[in-house]
């Protein structure tokens, strides 16, 4: 009821205004690069202290310095992996997933320095190095992720041309219906080519085709070759033009699938590798304490 006196309303209004003002920033530049600054500071401190602290006989994970970096690193890994839960757990409160992503990206990059300095460059064929290697795999896949997140959205948006996924599929189905009707008067070999094009499952594409966007066995492209220009009657001309419309509709869908695949493929490495990393990390920590 608007007539109830509300002391908090001024605060709410100011908060809403502030929220609107700070909204329009990407996760990379969130809060004026706050997490880039935090993460650079961490890296700088770790690198400088690595050279200042004198550990005998040489830097290793088992020194007090190594333990400190190890604890920080393990803590970071656990916290970074919680992003997946934060993202899906839509609770009340003034959290922002963008701020979390921003911190995730920059602190994750800082882990390269923290984790590597923790090893003291003592790498070998053991469970300890396995944990380090998995960590690096996760980070490298993450760097790929950042780069596609930064580069691909524009192309995704341009390619979409205001169409939704459903509309693209519907547009293709509409062309197919017209093709089927238009192909009725064609001769045997031409209609076979059209049937082959219509029968091919558009969405059955291998990983490689999806990622590269190249479909050498595309039946529509092949069918188009059965209608060489110059020698076509009216019915054939209509089918040919429908086929080329089908081809361009297909390529929009395929580009869409390609961009989406490029935006998602790294997660199939990033997430399983994170789970493996947490397992290896556990093994690493237990074995260190067991053989203390």
């Amino acid at each position: 009821m608007a007539s109830t006196p509300r002391d908090s309303s001024k605060v709410d209004f100011a908060f809403a205004e502030k929220r609107r003002d700070t909204d329009h920033e990407s996760f990379l530049s969130h809060a004026r690069m706050r997490w880039l600054k935090v993460s650079s500071a961490i890296c700088l401190i770790v690198i400088v202290s690595y050279f200042l602290v004198d550990v005998e006989p040489r830097h290793n994970g088992g020194s007090w310095y190594g333990y400190t970096l190890g604890t920080i690193g393990a803590g970071l890994i656990v916290w970074l992996s919680l992003l997946g839960i934060r993202k899906r757990n839509i609770t009340d409160g003034r959290w922002s997933l963008k701020a979390w992503t921003s911190a995730h990206v920059y602190l994750g990059l800082a882990l390269i320095v923290v984790g590597t300095m923790h090893t003291g460059f003592q790498l070998g064929w053991n469970v300890h190095t396995l944990a380090w290697a998995l960590m690096m795999l996760v980070i490298v896949s993450g760097i790929y992720g950042i780069s596609v997140y930064a580069a691909l959205p524009r192309s995704l948006s341009t390619n979409r041309r205001e169409m939704t996924r459903g509309q693209m599929i519907e547009a293709l189905a509409a062309i197919d219906r017209q093709l089927e009707a238009a192909a009725q008067p064609l001769g045997r070999s031409e209609s076979d080519a059209v049937i082959a094009a219509l029968d091919q499952d558009v969405f059955k594409a291998g990983l490689l085709a999806r990622l590269t966007g190249s479909y050498p066995r595309c039946a529509t492209a092949r069918a188009l070759r059965a209608f060489p220009e110059g020698s076509l009657n009216k019915a054939e001309q209509k089918v040919a033009s429908l086929l080329s419309r089908r081809k361009s509709q297909l390529s929009q869908i395929r580009r869409q699938m390609r961009y989406k695949a490029l935006l998602q493929v790294w997660l199939y490495i990033h997430i399983p590798a994170t789970i493996a990393l947490i397992a290896a990390l556990l093994a690493h920590v237990i074995s260190v304490f067991y053989y203390w």
């Binding site: 609107r20 839509i90 922002s96 997933l97 963008k98």
Partner: peptide
């Protein structure tokens, strides 16, 4: 609390309310 969930849950900052 925290306001519109669509904005809070956007990982990249693409969703804005104006």
């Amino acid at each position: 609390e925290g306001g519109p969930a669509c904005v809070r849950a956007c990982p990249t900052g693409a969703a804005i309310r104006v």
